[in-house]
Amino acid sequence: MKALTANRLTDGEVVFWKDGRWVERFADAQLWAVDDPAAVEAEALGKGQGTTVVDVYLIDLVESEGLWAPLSYRERIRALGPTNHPHHGKQAEGGAVVEALQHASGAARSTGRVNLIKRK
């Protein structure tokens, strides 16, 4: 599965795409099958919103505790908050999805992010 992420321009907050708008919680993010063309279409739409968000890219997901979590460690930290301050960032509110992210393990970088790095 895939999700679409970015940082909000005005405050830098990590956000996720959901049906044409941006939401703050990964739990609310819209998910697509890996080969669903709608993901790429959403990415293109998101990249056109330069006064709302910056650094728009797709992230790869992995199954964790029956839920979906970002595949890369970096993306899990973005979706949760810093590991040295458990009360800072999105992780503070807890819940099943947050826990699934916290328990998700390892694996590769997101291909979307790699493309973003290459583009720079």
Binding site: E13, V54, I77, R78, G81, P82
Partner: peptide, 16 residues
Amino acid sequence: KRLRLMNGLYLQLHAY
């Protein structure tokens, strides 16, 4: 970006 970076303002993982 190049203007904010001349003023110590970075976009990091969670915020600026």
